[in-house]
C-alpha cells in the first residue's frame, strides 16, 4: 500500500494526459501539475479500471438505493408486504399454495406471493434488503469501532496492554459463536420479548464476535507502522501519542480497514440470514431473506421460485460485496497478487 510501481504510475499519468509531468524526478518542468495525486486518487483510478469490482460496486449502490427507498418503491409498485392475500383468490383454498405458474407470478405480483400467508414476494425482498443491510452495516460498524480502537491500543502501546487485548481476541476467536448466539438470543429474547431487542442482540452478537478479526489486522499493521521513521520524526518534534496515533498511523490504516469492511459486511449478511433461517434471527412480520429461505424450504417441491428468489438475493449481494472488496484491495495494494 505504500508505493505503486513506476509502470503503474506511468499508466495512470498517461491516462490522465500528464505523461511524465508527475514523474519528472526533479519536478522542475511541471508547473501546471502542482496538485499532487494522493495515493487515494491513484487507487481510485486503478479501481475504476477494474470492471469486475465496478460491477460489484454498482450492485452495492443499487442494493442500498433499494433498501433506502423501499417505501417509495413499494408505493410505486402498488403492493406491500404486510397485506395477506389469503382470501382474495390468489391462493388455492385447498392447500393454500399460490395459484398459477411459478408461485403466482402475475402483472400485479411480479414475483408471485408466498404460500399460506399470500404476501407479495418482491416487496418482501426489498424490505429484506433493508433488514440485511441495517443489521450487517451496524454489526460491521460495531466490529470496526471495537477492533480499530483495541487493535490500535494493543499495537501501539504493546507490553501488558497488548498481552491482555491479544489474549482476549484469541479467546473470542475460539468461541463457538453460533451456539453462544443461539443461547444469548433465546435467553435475552425470552426475558424482554420485544422485537426491537431482538434486532439489537443480533447486531451485538455479530459485531462483538467479529471485532477480533479487524483487531488482529489493525494490531499487526500498527506494530509495523509504529517502527517507521515518520513516527520517530513526529516524536522527535514532540508529538503526543494521541497525535501520532491519529495523524500518523490511522491514515495509513484506512486502506486495510476499508477492504476489511467491504469483506465483513457480506459475512454479517450471511450471519443474519443464517440466524433468521434457524429461527433465532429477526421474526415476522419483519422481513428477512434468511427467514424467507427457511419458510420456503417447506414448500420447495410445489413452489421452487419462492426458495430461489431470496437465495438469489443473498447470493448476488454477497458476491457483489466480495468482488468489490477484492478489487478495492488490489487497487489499494497493487503489489499483492490475486
Amino acid at each position: 500500500m505504500t508505493l505503486s510501481g513506476p509502470t503503474e504510475l506511468e499508466a495512470v499519468a498517461a491516462e490522465d494526459g500528464l505523461t511524465g509531468a508527475g514523474l519528472d524526478p526533479e519536478g522542475d518542468q511541471a508547473p501546471q501539475a502542482i496538485q499532487g495525486r494522493s495515493l487515494w486518487s491513484i487507487a481510485w483510478r486503478r479501481l475504476r479500471r477494474d470492471k469486475v469490482a465496478m460491477a460489484g460496486g454498482i450492485v452495492i449502490v443499487l442494493l442500498v438505493l433499494i433498501a433506502v427507498f423501499a417505501p417509495l418503491l413499494q408505493a410505486l409498485y402498488g403492493q406491500d408486504y404486510q397485506t395477506l392475500h389469503q382470501t382474495d383468490g390468489l391462493l388455492d383454498p385447498l392447500d393454500s399454495m399460490p395459484k398459477g405458474a411459478l408461485g403466482g407470478v402475475s402483472g400485479a405480483h411480479w414475483l408471485g406471493v408466498t404460500p399460506v400467508t399470500g404476501q407479495d414476494i418482491l416487496t418482501l425482498l426489498m424490505y429484506g434488503a433493508r433488514t440485511s443491510l441495517i443489521i450487517a452495516g451496524l454489526a460491521t460498524a460495531l466490529s470496526l469501532i471495537l477492533g480499530v480502537t483495541l487493535g490500535l491500543t494493543a499495537g501501539y502501546f504493546r507490553g501488558w496492554v497488548d498481552l491482555l487485548i491479544s489474549r482476549t481476541m484469541d479467546v473470542l476467536l475460539s468461541f463457538p459463536t453460533l451456539l453462544l448466539s443461539i443461547a444469548l438470543i433465546t435467553v435475552v429474547g425470552y426475558i424482554s420479548g420485544a422485537e426491537i431487542v431482538r434486532f439489537e442482540i443480533i447486531i451485538f452478537v455479530l459485531g462483538f464476535f467479529g471485532w477480533p478479526y479487524i483487531g488482529r489486522i489493525v494490531r499487526g499493521q500498527v506494530l509495523s507502522l509504529r517502527e517507521k521513521e515518520f513516527v520517530e520524526a513526529a516524536r522527535s518534534l514532540g508529538a503526543s501519542n494521541l497525535r501520532i496515533m491519529f495523524r500518523e498511523i490511522i491514515p495509513n490504516l484506512i486502506g486495510p480497514i476499508l477492504v476489511y469492511t467491504t469483506l465483513t459486511i457480506p459475512n454479517n449478511m450471511l450471519g443474519e440470514a443464517g440466524l433468521s433461517f434457524l429461527g433465532i434471527g429477526v421474526i415476522p412480520p419483519t422481513p428477512s431473506w434468511g427467514q424467507m429461505l427457511s419458510d420456503a424450504g417447506q414448500y420447495f417441491q410445489i413452489d421452487p421460485l419462492y426458495l430461489f428468489l431470496p437465495g438469489l438475493a443473498i447470493f448476488i449481494s454477497v458476491l457483489a460485496f466480495n468482488l468489490f472488496g477484492d478489487g478495492l484491495r488490489d487497487a489499494l495494494d497493487p503489489k499483492s497478487g490475486r
Binding site: T2, F230, A233, S236, P251, N252
Partner: peptide, 17 residues
Amino acid sequence: IQMIFQDPYSSLNPRHT
C-alpha cells in the same frame, strides 16, 4: 534538537502532502 533520518522512504508519511 532535530533529526534527519536515514531512509527517505520511511521517514515521510505516505498519506500526507
